[in-house]
Simulated scan of single mutants.
Amino acid sequence: MPMTLKVYEVSRDGTIRTIRPEAEVKPLEKPEASHQFPACQCPECPETAR
C-alpha cells in the first residue's frame, strides 16, 4: 500500500512553507530490525576516512 509524504515547516505566525512537495513512497516490505543509526557516510568523519 503506497503512502504519501510531504515535508513542510510552520512559522510562529502560522505561515506554512513547503520544503518538499507531496510524493508517493512505498514502504519497505520488511524493515531492518535495529535500534542503531546507520554509519555516517560523510567524508569528514574519521570512521569513513580510513
Rank of each mutant, 00 (worst) to 15 (best):
L28V: 11
M1L: 01
P27A: 00
C40A: 07
Q41S: 04
R50V: 02
R20H: 08
T15L: 03
Q41M: 01
K30F: 01
A23F: 12
V25A: 10
P2T: 06
H35P: 00
Y8D: 07
Q41C: 06
F37H: 08
A49V: 14
E32G: 01
I16P: 08
E9I: 04
E22C: 04
E29A: 02
T18G: 04
R50M: 09
E22W: 02
P2V: 07
L28T: 03
P46L: 10
P21M: 12
L5S: 07
P31G: 11
A23I: 14
T18I: 15
A49C: 13
P31A: 02
I16Y: 10
P43D: 05
R20L: 05
R17S: 15
C40W: 07
R12M: 11
P2I: 01
M1I: 03
L5D: 11
E24N: 08
P38C: 03
T48G: 00
P27M: 06
H35D: 05
P21H: 14
L28R: 02
V25K: 02
D13H: 08
F37K: 05
K26S: 11
M3N: 01
Q36V: 08
T4V: 04
M3V: 13
P21I: 06
A49T: 14
M3D: 12
E22Q: 13
A49G: 15
P21W: 06
E9W: 13
A33P: 07
T18H: 13
C40Q: 01
K26A: 11
L5E: 07
Y8E: 07
C42Q: 11
I19L: 09
E44S: 15
V25E: 06
P31L: 09
V7E: 09
G14S: 00
E24C: 07
A39G: 07
C42P: 04
M1P: 04
A49Y: 14
Q41R: 05
A23N: 12
S34Y: 03
F37V: 09
A23V: 14
P43W: 01
R12A: 13
